[in-house]
């Protein structure tokens, strides 16, 4: 196993093939908690853990999984790791666990994890799959951490619960609520796509990840 492959996987998952702003996958489960930075850190840690280990497990078992039950086995594996995260959180950081509520369980349906398992872990050796899982998780995490940072800062004037902006700052309540998250993510995608994806623009291709549905224009 040459380290070149590791580095390539790393670069891709963090940048060109980033799950969030390129593939637009898996935002559901974590976007809700991005109004508090601390909670986001915990969620992302959990997600990186699950993605990495489930990729590893699927890859280890890949030669034995019968075709017909492939998705069920993957789901079982992912759900198991999520349960582990949930139980550990409940035992060791209960107040954060209560704040995260059902969103920890929703890591199971996070498209990224299943996506990587199908696209990568089934056809790659365990070591590489583990790295792929971890880096996908990390690529996803840093986007959300930036969003969380901005949301908490603008919405409450504090970071990690510590007030950093003075009394003069009037909280942008909208940042704590749902629309704030949508706008922040859109802003992030706009900045990234507009500035860093000039090559895609030059080729005139549509964004990756979204289905190439034919728009039924005309009659409105």
């Amino acid at each position: 196993m040459n380290s070149y492959r590791f580095r390539q996987v790393f670069k891709e998952n963090i940048g060109i093939n980033n799950p969030v702003f390129v593939q637009i996958l898996g935002i559901c489960s974590t976007l809700a908690v991005t109004n508090v930075l601390r909670n986001t850190v915990v969620m992302c840690a959990g997600l990186v853990f699950v993605t990495g280990l489930s990729n590893l497990t699927v890859s280890l078992l890949r030669q034995y999984i019968p075709g017909r039950v492939r998705m069920m086995v993957e789901t079982l594996i992912i759900a198991s790791y999520v349960i582990i995260v949930d139980v550990v959180l409940k035992a060791f950081i209960p107040d954060i666990s209560r704040q995260l509520g059902p969103y920890v369980g929703l890591i199971i349906t996070n498209c990224i994890i299943m996506g990587r398992a199908e696209a990568f872990a089934l056809s790659n050796p365990p070591g590489l799959s583990l790295v792929d899982g971890l880096t996908s998780g990390l690529g996803y995490s840093y986007v959300l951490l930036i969003i969380a940072f901005l949301r908490e800062l603008l919405g409450t004037g504090s970071i990690w619960g510590v007030r950093v902006l003075g009394e003069w700052w009037i909280n942008w309540n909208i940042m704590i609520m749902a629309p704030g998250a949508f706008f922040m993510l859109a802003l992030f995608i706009w900045v990234v796509k507009g500035n860093f994806m000039k090559e895609k623009k030059a080729q005139g291709s549509a964004p990756a990840g979204a289905p190439q549905a034919v728009s039924t224009g005309g009659k409105s």
Binding site: I189, W190, V191, K193, G194, P207
Partner: peptide, 9 residues
């Protein structure tokens, strides 16, 4: 704007 097409908008 290009940066917003698809998911952004």
């Amino acid at each position: 704007p290009f940066g917003l097409t698809g998911a952004g908008i």
